[in-house]
Write a protein that binds this DNA or RNA. Structure first.
Length: 611
DNA sequence: GAGCACTGC
């Protein structure tokens, strides 16, 4: 019945992102009498912000607004408490029972252990497909080839045929859809997958699930400004979600490669919501731009508040790129930025590019960067594609932003031919996504655009051969992500309120001068800590452009920034006076989240080290 | 000399 209802409503459904945009121009959302927050259990950044806004809105529109929150797993009581005891309706699910088996110990090598379990199922169990959860592409590839090998070695005729299929996000679509065609007769399918199979994709025919108990997760550390991609333990909710995948068509079995004591005591109840794992610059800017009279970012009522540290980090970043002034008030530039559905740094770059007369190029860079991660093919080990891509950048060496621009312009010259992408080892999907984003951005920015927004590849280059305008715009937009080279070598340190030693990522196309020295100043798109802290997507900038940023850094005062109208109030005592208030909760230490993640990571590394 | 899970306005 619910499904029917949803279909009926489909015409009126807006995505969370769109509702947030609508809030900008119409904060009371008067045109709606019912708002449905769907899939709230996924706890995306947008969902969490909307939950906070809805709570606020209900107070203002108590008589004429209904809010319905649907969730597959979200703890109803917690949400009910958040919304001052609103009613909870339970709709019983229809999935079949899934029997769970635990291993007695944590395996030292979960690939090997999954492999043995999978073979065991194949030999002993009744027909039915097997879904195996792994953490990433590398593990999946390894698992697929080993599994195929072991199955080959089984005695002929001892069991049914087998088909092993990988499934992960960077797989080309034509390979992804293979999992949707049912198994041939007398054949068992093994689907080796990442998280995609947990919620996003449903694979029919699965009766057995093998769960390694880990997941790859991206997190942001506000005290260093760095992201890391870690293998961490899953949560109980995730474990149950994975198990549930075995019971969609008939009763199933789930093999958990961890003891039940670990499930009970070590796993977190739920996955740490995105709002506590990501940089909040964009969200804070959004909330500031709503212009709600009584809004104070540090006291905003979140279901799970982000740390104080993370909010302050966002304020500092926004200040450095002119989105808020030194007392934390949103600026005119900030208002414009909030209208663009982009990272604040990219929005700022676009606005500056518009002033400098290189908007068209900046639009391309912003669009391509939004999809950059999925751009590169990882299929080919050889360097052919990389070499070909480098030819496209005709050796400008100014950095990765310029290269991405040139790649897109070349694709444009090739009339957006998908074959061109494959020839240059680029993912068609990512390139198409860039193209869509670019179109959307051009439309939004049309009303303030001072120059052409359509792609004008040749002309742009001719009028500015060194991309100075574009790089200057990037320098303003990424004023919060600036690094200075060491005197004697090509290492860098970040410039800002916290300093980190970092290096240019080896995949960068940034070039040195005749002595091999890289530019003295660069801006970067992100810091990612893998084997070492790396700057990814780097652009060389000039010293004179950097001066205004350094000046702002001198003036930066977090007490003023976070204060708004109550700039002089010291926060710590204020929180103590209001125990149990959201403010208190908002002060939840980032270190709590960090230490949870860190502990989970260490446990994983310790086990990995043992093998 | 590294190697990124998931989405998607």
């Amino acid at each position: 019945m619910l499904f029917g209802l949803k279909t009926e409503l489909q015409k009126r459904l807006r995505s969370n992102g769109v509702l947030l945009r609508e809030s900008l121009s119409n904060p009371e959302l008067k045109q709606y009498s019912v708002i449905i927050l769907d899939e709230a259990h996924e706890r995306s950044l947008n969902t969490d912000i909307l939950l906070g806004l809805m709570k606020r809105l209900i107070k203002h529109r108590a008589s004429d607004l209904k809010v319905l929150i649907t969730s597959a797993t979200l703890d109803g009581l917690k949400v009910s408490n958040f919304f001052s005891g609103c009613p909870v309706l339970n709709i019983p699910g229809t999935i079949f029972p899934v029997e769970k088996f635990y291993s007695t110990d944590r395996p030292t090598n979960y690939i090997e252990s999954s492999l043995r379990t999978a073979i065991d199922i194949h030999v002993k169990e009744a027909p039915g497909d097997v879904l195996i959860f792994m953490t990433g592409k590398d593990d999946i590839d390894k698992m697929v080839s080993k599994l195929e090998e072991r199955i080959q070695n089984l005695e002929e005729g001892s069991c049914m045929d087998a088909l092993v299929l990988p499934l992960h996000g960077s797989l080309p679509p034509e390979q992804q859809v293979r999992v949707f065609s049912p198994a041939p007769p007398n054949c068992r399918r093994f689907i080796v997958a990442t998280n995609v199979a947990e919620t996003s994709l449903t694979v029919d025919g699965v009766v057995f699930v093998v769960d390694c108990g880990y997941v790859k997760q991206r997190q942001y550390n506000p005290s260093t400004g760095m992201y890391s991609l870690d293998v961490v333990e899953i949560s109980r909710v995730q474990a149950d979600q994975r198990a549930g995948r075995a019971g969609r068509t008939r009763p199933g079995k789930c093999y958990r490669l961890y003891p039940s004591s670990i499930y009970q005591k070590e796993f977190l109840e739920a996955t740490i919501p995105e709002i506590q794992r990501t940089s909040l610059a964009g969200s804070v800017l959004y909330l500031k731009s709503l212009n709600l009279p009584d809004i104070d970012i540090l006291k905003f009522d979140f279901l799970d508040p982000p740390s104080r540290e993370s909010l302050e980090d966002a304020l500092r970043q926004l200040y450095l790129i002119d989105a808020i002034d030194e007392s934390g008030q949103i600026t005119d530039v900030g208002r414009l930025m909030a209208e663009l559905p982009l990272d604040p740094s990219l929005s700022r770059t676009l606005i500056e590019a518009n002033e400098l007369g290189c908007l068209s190029q900046a639009l391309t860079v912003a669009a391509v960067l939004s999809a950059e991660i999925t751009l590169r093919q990882t299929r080919n080990k050889d360097m052919e594609g990389k070499r070909k891509r480098q030819e496209l950048s005709d050796g400008s060496g100014w950095g990765d932003h310029v290269q991405l621009l040139q790649i897109f312009e070349s694709w444009d010259q090739a009339d957006y031919d998908p074959r061109w992408c494959s020839e240059h080892d680029l993912q068609v999907r990512g390139m198409k996504f860039s193209k869509d984003v670019r179109n959307q951005l051009s439309q939004i920015i049309q009303k303030i655009a001072k120059g052409p927004t359509d792609l004008q590849a040749r002309r742009g280059r001719k009028s500015d051969p060194d991309y100075r305008k574009l790089r200057r715009a990037l320098c303003v937009g990424y004023g919060n992500q600036l690094a200075e080279r060491m005197i004697h070598h090509n290492g860098y340190h970040t410039v800002g309120y916290r300093t980190q030693l970092v290096q240019v990522h080896p995949s960068s196309v940034l070039e040195g001068d005749e002595y091999g020295k890289l530019p003295v100043y660069v801006v970067y798109h992100e810091l990612i800590n893998t084997t070492r802290p790396f700057m990814r997507n780097v652009c060389g900038v000039e010293q004179t452009w950097v001066k205004p940023i350094l000046k702002k850094l001198e003036k930066l005062n977090i007490n003023k920034l976070s204060g708004g109208s109550s700039a002089l109030i010291d926060y710590e005592p204020l929180e103590e006076k209001q125990p149990g208030s959201p403010t208190k909760a908002a002060a939840a230490k980032q270190s709590d989240v960090d230490s949870k993640i860190q502990a989970a990571r260490e446990r994983y590394l310790a086990r990995k080290g043992k093998k």
